[in-house]
């Protein structure tokens, strides 16, 4: 720990607190994620092992954060990552520079490459969302936060928790309480992220779990036995029923996108997990090979150092609304208008 000097706090997640720190020896800025272990007597929880193992096994992919170091610290441990200036949710919310189609493609390609790599290694992330996709100073997108990651196997006898993934990105089978699922949950999330990239706002912003399901059903239509045969086996299938409604064509949900994008989105947002387009398949979708070509990472917005805009909030911010500021500071300077206005 003394190799690092803490510079500040970056954020706090469900799985730990993240600090910005400096590696004293190299002067490198890093992110330290401090994960506390609740009870030492209980040993290391599986989750911690999964997070660390997942990061270790996939470290050499360009689109996954790299675990630089790891060490116990007090009743917990610290994970050391490269410090990232921003994450995708910030990029999406930046209204100054809305993403161009090429940039959306660029991000999707990087995301899919990262996810494809995870899935090739039998790791499901289970918490993909824009806030967990970090943006490096070179513009690269990197999948981060493996706090919920775990290995999956094709044998299908393993049971998993359905309390995974952030609500807006949670796959319908999870909302129905599935305990047996696969990497399809990640692909659903990828679809949601894709939609969010296209729309600059979340695709299914449900306020609670029930409403989340409503949001999904409203767009995809009420699932039927044909569209989702496995649905009847889901634990919570009988607990809730919805009024039947037809699907809304995705063209209407993402109105400003090319047909190929809609087509690709359709392939992610399907009820049966097995039918969702795998990340590797998605990568050779014509969407990525048609004009405009995916933006090179250097054409993607490079986050400003230190300029982390405020996070999305639940509350109105404690900003000082300027009542007392002189008006002159707020209005445009007429002298700037004058040369232009003079023609009028």
């Amino acid at each position: 720990m003394e190799q690092y000097s803490i510079l500040g706090r970056i954020g706090e997640g469900a799985h730990g607190i993240v600090f910005q720190a400096k590696h004293i020896e190299t002067g490198e800025t890093v992110a330290l994620k401090k994960v506390a272990l609740r009870k030492l007597e209980d040993g290391i929880p599986n989750q911690a092992v999964r997070e660390i193992k997942a990061l270790q096994e996939i470290e050499d992919n360009q689109h996954v954060v790299k675990l630089k170091d790891f060490f116990p610290h007090g009743t917990g441990f610290v994970l050391v990552f490269d410090f990232m200036l921003s994450d995708l949710s910030e990029v999406i919310r930046n209204s100054q520079r809305p993403l161009t189609p090429a940039q959306v493609k660029g991000y999707m390609m990087m995301l899919l490459k990262g996810v494809a790599f995870l899935h090739q290694n039998s790791i499901m992330h289970r918490d993909l969302k824009p806030a967990n996709l970090l943006i490096s100073s070179s513009g690269h997108l990197k999948v981060a936060d493996f706090g919920l990651a775990r290995l999956f196997s094709d044998q299908g006898e393993r049971l998993y928790s359905h309390q995974v993934a952030t609500r807006w990105y949670r796959a319908p089978e999870l909302l129905y309480g599935a305990r047996k699922y696969d990497e399809g949950v990640d692909l659903w999330a990828v679809g949601c992220i894709f939609g969010e990239l296209l729309n600059s706002s979340p695709l299914f912003p449900g306020e609670n779990d029930i409403e989340q399901l409503c949001c999904v059903l409203r767009v995809l239509g009420t699932p039927t036995r044909e569209s989702w045969p496995e649905m009847v086996e889901l634990p919570d299938y009988n607990k809730i029923t919805f009024k039947e409604n037809p699907a809304i064509p995705l063209e209407e949900i993402v109105p400003d996108t090319c047909p190929q994008a809609v087509d690709l989105l359709c392939r992610f947002l399907v009820y049966p997990s097995r039918r969702r387009c795998s990340a590797t398949q998605a990568l050779i979708h014509p969407f990525f090979f048609s004009s405009p070509l995916p933006a090179h990472h250097s054409e993607l917005p490079i986050p400003q150092r230190g300029g982390r805009p405020p996070r999305q909030r639940l509350q109105a911010p404690p900003t000082d609304f300027s009542v007392d500021l002189p008006l002159q500071n707020s209005v445009v300077d007429p002298s700037e208008l004058r040369p232009h206005a003079s023609c009028l």
């Binding site: 919310r93 209204s95 706002s201 979340p202 912003p205 306020e207 405020p310 999305q312 909030r313 639940l314 509350q315 109105a316 911010p317 900003t319 609304f321």
Partner: peptide
């Protein structure tokens, strides 16, 4: 300012 939080509400 309001855009930063209205999505989380009705």
């Amino acid at each position: 300012e309001v855009t930063t939080f209205w999505i989380r509400h009705p």
